[in-house]
Each structure stands twice: as structure tokens, then as C-alpha cells.
């Protein structure tokens, strides 16, 4: 990727930061606030990981341990929140 491409990603990250702060001032209900906030953060993280950390052009040997990590990360949340499922109030 050329420098211009990296600068483009940087610009997108700045715009998404402004969007996420702007959305927070709308005082939306809790659930949309959480969903939108995490969705924008995930989009930003994806840009950083794919392009700045070069994951887009990485080898399979990097993808497999990361896939396992994503699974374990999801389980960490699933089991934790499972214990709260009967009385979560948003």
C-alpha cells in the first residue's frame, strides 16, 4: 500500500471518531447507543488491523491463531453474560 492509501485510512479513522462522538450527543436510548458505539469502534479497529497491521496481506499461520483467539474472546463474553441473562436491565 502506498503512503496515499495510509493517509486515506487515517482520514477515515478521524471521520469515524467524529461520527461516534456526534452520535453520543444525540442521547439515543441505551441499546442503539451501545450497538452504534461498538459498531463504529469495530469498523475503526478493522481498518487499523487490516491496513496498519498488514493483516490483509498476512499468511494463514497468522490467521489460525487469531481465529482461535476470536473464538475464545467470544466465549469469555458469552459465559460471563450467560450468568446475567436472567436479570439484565438496559
Amino acid at each position: 500500500m502506498h503512503v496515499r492509501g495510509y493517509i486515506g485510512i487515517f482520514g477515515a479513522l478521524l471521520v469515524l471518531t467524529l461520527v461516534t462522538v456526534g452520535v453520543s450527543y444525540l442521547q439515543l436510548p441505551t441499546v442503539p447507543t451501545i450497538v452504534l458505539g461498538l459498531a463504529i469502534a469495530s469498523a475503526k479497529a478493522t481498518l487499523v488491523v487490516l491496513f496498519f497491521m498488514h493483516l490483509k496481506t498476512e499468511r494463514a499461520m497468522v490467521y489460525w491463531p487469531l481465529a482461535l483467539t476470536v473464538f475464545l474472546f467470544a466465549m469469555l463474553f458469552a459465559f460471563t453474560l450467560w450468568t446475567e441473562m436472567d436479570h439484565i436491565t438496559l
Binding site: 461516534t20 462522538v21 452520535v23 453520543s24 458505539g37 461498538l38 469502534a41 487499523v48 496498519f52 497491521m53
Partner: peptide
């Protein structure tokens, strides 16, 4: 060193909305 540094950035990208905005 850059891959580590960007990871630290990614962590903050999640800390920011979770602790300040949600």
C-alpha cells in the same frame, strides 16, 4: 514494533466508547 503500537491504538478505540460514550 508498529504492529504492537497499532494494537495499543485498537484497544483505545474500544476503551473510548465503552468508558466515555456508552
Amino acid at each position: 514494533a508498529g504492529i504492537y503500537w497499532h494494537f495499543v491504538d485498537v484497544v483505545w478505540i474500544f476503551l473510548f466508547p465503552v468508558l466515555y460514550l456508552l
